[in-house]
C-alpha cells in the first residue's frame, strides 16, 4: 500500500470534509475535496484519485448515487473504488448492507455510517486501496 495514494472527498459538509482530510493526511495520503457532485466528477476526471470518498448527499435528493453511477459508468474511472458515507437506512428504510453488492442499483465498494470514527476511516481506506 502506497501512502502517496490520492484520495478525493466529495461531501457538501465542509466540516466533515475537513475532519476527514486531517485524519487521512495524518497517514500521509494526498487529499483533495469537492463540495458538489459536479465539482467532484470534474476532479475525478482531472486528478484521477486512487479512491473516492462520497457522501450520499441526501439533501440534494441522493445526488451521491448519481455521482457513483457516473464514476462507475465512465471507462476511465470505472476501476476507482468508492467508499460511500451514508445513513441511508433511516431515511429510506432500505437495507443498505445488502444493496452495497448490487452493482446496478448502487455501484459502491464499501460504505460507512456517519459519524466516522477516525480509526474506522483509516482501516476502511487502507483496505480499499490495498484491494485495488
Amino acid at each position: 500500500m502506497s501512502n502517496k495514494s490520492k484520495i478525493l472527498i466529495i461531501d457538501d459538509d465542509p466540516d466533515i470534509s475537513e475532519a476527514m482530510k486531517v485524519v487521512l493526511e495524518s497517514k500521509q495520503y494526498q487529499v483533495a475535496t469537492a463540495k458538489t457532485g459536479e465539482q467532484g466528477l470534474k476532479k475525478v476526471k482531472q486528478e484521477k484519485p486512487d479512491l473516492v470518498i462520497l457522501d450520499v448527499m441526501m439533501e440534494t435528493q441522493g445526488k451521491g448515487f448519481d455521482v457513483a453511477r457516473a464514476i462507475k459508468g465512465d471507462e476511465d474511472t470505472k476501476d476507482t473504488p468508492i467508499l460511500m458515507l451514508t445513513a441511508v437506512k433511516e431515511k429510506t428504510g432500505l437495507d443498505f448492507k445488502k444493496e452495497a453488492g448490487d452493482d446496478a442499483w448502487l455501484p459502491v465498494d464499501a460504505y460507512l455510517d456517519k459519524p466516522l470514527k477516525p480509526e474506522e476511516l483509516i482501516s476502511k481506506v487502507g483496505l480499499l486501496l490495498g484491494k485495488s
Binding site: D15, P115, K117
Partner: peptide
C-alpha cells in the same frame, strides 16, 4: 432530528481526530 444529526456528526467528526491524538 435529521438536521440535529447532521450537525452532531460534524461535531463528532471534528472532535475525534483530536481526542485520538491525530493532530
Amino acid at each position: 432530528t435529521h438536521d440535529i444529526k447532521e450537525h452532531l456528526a460534524a461535531i463528532q467528526s471534528c472532535i475525534e481526530p483530536v481526542t485520538g491524538g491525530i493532530v
